Simulated scan of single mutants.
Amino acid sequence: MTADDATAIAAFLQSVKPVGNQVPGPFKPGEKVSSFMFRIMPPGETAAAAPK
């Protein structure tokens, strides 16, 4: 990538308007989480047996 390419990409990214998505949370202890949650479990364990 040349210096001109990098300058053109930077100029383009600075011209794009930001997205207005709302970020969920923070959540209090015990509060239902409204976003996707991924839990990695050690081999042999299940999500039902995991501490909450």
Rank of each mutant, 00 (worst) to 15 (best):
S35G: 13
G20T: 15
K52H: 09
V16G: 03
G30C: 03
Q14W: 01
F36H: 05
I9G: 02
A49I: 03
M1T: 12
P24T: 00
S34P: 00
T7H: 14
F38G: 12
L13A: 08
E45V: 12
A11S: 14
E31R: 03
M37V: 15
M1I: 04
F38K: 15
N21H: 13
S35H: 11
F36Q: 09
A47H: 04
G25H: 02
S34M: 00
M37K: 12
P51V: 00
T2L: 04
A10D: 14
A49H: 08
I9Y: 13
P26C: 03
P51K: 04
D5Q: 14
A47V: 14
G20L: 09
V23S: 10
P51M: 00
A50R: 05
S15T: 11
P24I: 00
P18M: 01
A8F: 01
F12M: 10
P26K: 05
A47Y: 11
S15C: 06
A6G: 08
R39G: 04
S34Q: 10
M1D: 12
P24H: 00
E31H: 06
T7D: 15
A10K: 15
F12C: 04
G25Y: 02
A49Y: 02
L13V: 13
A49N: 14
S15L: 05
L13E: 14
D5A: 08
G30R: 03
A47M: 11
F36C: 02
D5H: 10
K32S: 07
P18Y: 00
A48N: 07
A10C: 03
E45K: 13
V19N: 13
D4P: 00
P42W: 00
S35M: 10
N21W: 13
I40V: 12
P43M: 07
M37E: 14
K17Q: 12
S15E: 03
G20E: 15
A10V: 01
L13I: 11
K28N: 13
P18L: 02
P43D: 12
A10T: 06
M37A: 14
K17L: 08
T46G: 07
A3Q: 12
G25S: 06
M41N: 12
P29W: 07
A50W: 06
P29L: 06
T7K: 15
G30V: 05
